[in-house]
Design a protein around this nucleic acid. Sequence first.
DNA 1: TTCGTTGCAAAGCTTTTGCACGAAT
DNA 2: ATTCGTGCAAAAGCTTTGCAACGAA
Lengths: 153, 153
Amino acid sequence: MYRCMMDKEAHQLKDFLELGGLKSTKERETILKELEVLEEHFNAEKLYSILSRKGTKVSRPTIYRTLKLLERFHLIERLDVKKNCFYYEPMSHKKDHGHLVCEHCGRIIDFASESIQDLKSEVFEGKNFKLDNISIQIFGICETCQKTSKIKS
Amino acid sequence: MYRCMMDKEAHQLKDFLELGGLKSTKERETILKELEVLEEHFNAEKLYSILSRKGTKVSRPTIYRTLKLLERFHLIERLDVKKNCFYYEPMSHKKDHGHLVCEHCGRIIDFASESIQDLKSEVFEGKNFKLDNISIQIFGICETCQKTSKIKS
DNA sequence: TTCGTTGCAAAGCTTTTGCACGAAT
DNA sequence: ATTCGTGCAAAAGCTTTGCAACGAA
């Protein structure tokens, strides 16, 4: 299962890196540190601009490479939210949950649900499919946008 | 709600087109006709090559534009399956269902589930979120690939 | 005739890659 | 001393756009 992230990410990463004969660099630590405090869903570009603004700029290629690395180690998870780019889940979001994606403002809201577990059991029992990761997106209009409904049909 | 598609797509489309002051062209009909018989999930490039092979080639820009049009009319639905491109649901797939996406061979298998309805009710009751469309992807390894498991961990 | 539509070529955007330099072990 | 990682610039891959020619109403 992806999606899940331990508390001491840094340690984990270092272990993984060592195991894989990979190196711990200041760029990787910068990114990891940012992800530990990041509350929102993000993509490569957003991370790039956050770090740039903070004066700890890391190049785009390195950001992309590092995100891939972290994904491979299941330390972050890639989302699928109808944008033509990759979005990621912050490390702080842990257990199984789905995403409410507002089609008006683009906001992504996590939601937990009993039914997700049911769904997994059903699929596991019904089909001979080795589950890895479940990804649930519900598209619609969030509360805020419904109120300020400047929404064109 | 997206995802749902009536039987007489062509009629529907013509109505929509008329309503919007849009025109019915042979390119749009070619695409629509292909989508009516297409069994598999597809993307723009796949559609392009199918039509090209059949000798009813339509340019890429037109394919992209038409798919967008059909999506706008809720005649097809865009999927989110961890590829860096848009995948669509064929018109023949109707009611609420999720997708099992094999991470090894890339195959997409539809599955229906009671729990999807539960999930929708839960969200509808719990949050003040105006539902539009639910998108469920379960990633893992399909039966076939498990058997022929040449899978690198 | 009037607009919407098409195809081409070019541009746009996100992501990836080649390569030389630099840093970690 | 190796070997891996970084940044730059360039390429790649998918999608969109500008524009002139075309075609449906």
